[in-house]
Computed example of a mutant assay.
Amino acid sequence: MNPDQIASFLYLALLGAALVFWYVVNNRRSMNKMVQQAALWVLIFIGVIAAVGLWGDIRQASTFSHSVSAETGEITVPRAPDGHYYLTLDINDRPVRFVIDTGATDMVLTRADAEKVGIDLDNTQFLGRAQTANGQVKVATVYLDTVRIGDVTDRDLRASVNDGEMRNSLLGMTYLQRFDRIEISGGKLVLAR
């Protein structure tokens, strides 16, 4: 902790202690009721902390997942609250979440996702270079045995692994151009083969 954080913590601790002291002095005649109210406030505080800590997981697990129609062969992807479109593909029978990026050329995996799908990064050479919004990064070319979404399976697909920091893997145009139609309308992205 830096000095400013320590000072803020001490200030809040003193303020909290003063409030607790005031509350105890004002309610000393009804200690049983005071203990019940204090327990209730502690539970409310713990609940709020838990909700704040889990908020990202709650948002991600909500209704923002894609749907695949077997009849039409369409994949419908709703726009997430952050404005992006996310699609989960099974790569080598492991789910990998991608952000759809029509500005990216390749399908680009993060190092973590590459390891998750079985790519041995210790024996992978990062010889290529790619220009990103954050500057130039090293990349390695890899081949994915299977890429599946719904009933659609592609085999032996070329992809890249980014040696730099990335939050999500990117689903770029080398994969998206496999679809006959890409349409964005009404907060949904539709892919059709």
Rank of each mutant, 00 (worst) to 15 (best):
T110A: 06
A192N: 06
N2T: 10
P78F: 01
V68S: 12
A61Y: 00
R97H: 01
K188T: 14
A13M: 13
I46C: 04
I6S: 12
T153G: 05
F179C: 01
T124W: 06
K188P: 00
A130V: 15
M1W: 08
G118C: 05
L15V: 11
A104N: 08
M1Q: 12
Y86P: 05
L19G: 09
L189C: 00
S30Y: 03
M1T: 13
T102K: 08
Y11K: 13
I119P: 00
F179M: 08
V147M: 12
D4M: 14
D145R: 13
F126E: 02
S62R: 12
H66D: 08
S65T: 15
I184V: 15
A51H: 04
K138P: 01
M31L: 15
V147Q: 09
A192F: 02
G187Q: 05
N134K: 09
V139T: 15
T132G: 04
G16H: 04
G164Q: 11
D122I: 00
Q37E: 13
Y23T: 15
D113Y: 10
W41A: 06
V137C: 03
A38C: 08
I119D: 02
L54T: 08
N2R: 09
Q5Y: 03
A39G: 08
G118M: 05
Y86R: 04
W22L: 14
A18S: 14
F64Q: 06
A133E: 07
G135I: 11
L10Q: 10
D101E: 03
V142C: 00
A13I: 11
G172E: 06
I119M: 02
F126A: 00
T146S: 13
M173L: 09
A18F: 10
D113A: 07
L189M: 15
T102H: 09
R94W: 05
S62Q: 13
G186V: 04
E74Y: 09
R148E: 07
A51F: 10
L12G: 01
A159L: 03
A159P: 07
L171M: 12
F21C: 07
D156E: 10
V35H: 01
R28S: 15
L54N: 10
T141Y: 02
L191M: 08
N168I: 03
R129S: 13
A104Q: 08
G83T: 05
E165C: 02
L89I: 07
V20E: 07
I49S: 02
V24C: 04
T141M: 10
V190D: 02
T141R: 13
